[in-house]
Amino acid sequence: MASKINIDLAVNGTSHAVSIEPRRTLADVLRDDCGLTGTHIGCEHGVCGACTVLVDDKPVRSCLMFGVQAEGKAIRTVEGLANGDTLHPLQQAFWENHGLQCGFCTPGFLMLSAGVLEQNPDMSDDEIRDVLSSNLCRCTGYQNIVKAVQIAARELRARPRV
């Protein structure tokens, strides 16, 4: 086994001290070393987007980054999306609009949408659809996912910005 590297990872505002081989993907480190299994692994080659997390506020495929690369970065995962018991508007919109069935792709879609809407809150419905084509869902046919994100985007826009 290759030697391990000790690093601190900042995930959802909490520091995790981990000792990892450099070859471990960020997705595996989050799941196995940080115990945050909300980030799902669907393809490990960057296509399905189930493992999407935010690194320094940008949505990225965590299967295409190594854990060691995330040292010093602010990582956000689905576990950090809700505010205590209050669901994030995206989570609420997915729930109200039946935007999930099996729920496996859901964390990836939520983090993708959360990251993109923070960077670009004024996206049109078409732009939202274009971004959502980044991730795969096998259950819903996307209709309700797109609808949920569009609705949440409107709600987020209506909020006072900080």
Partner: peptide, 20 residues
């Protein structure tokens, strides 16, 4: 009605095979 099973799935608290 919205689904009663959705909340853990939205919060990243599902228990899929790899989570065991």
């Amino acid at each position: 009605l919205r689904r009663i099973e959705d909340r853990p799935l939205l919060l990243g608290k599902g228990s899929f095979a790899a989570d065991c």
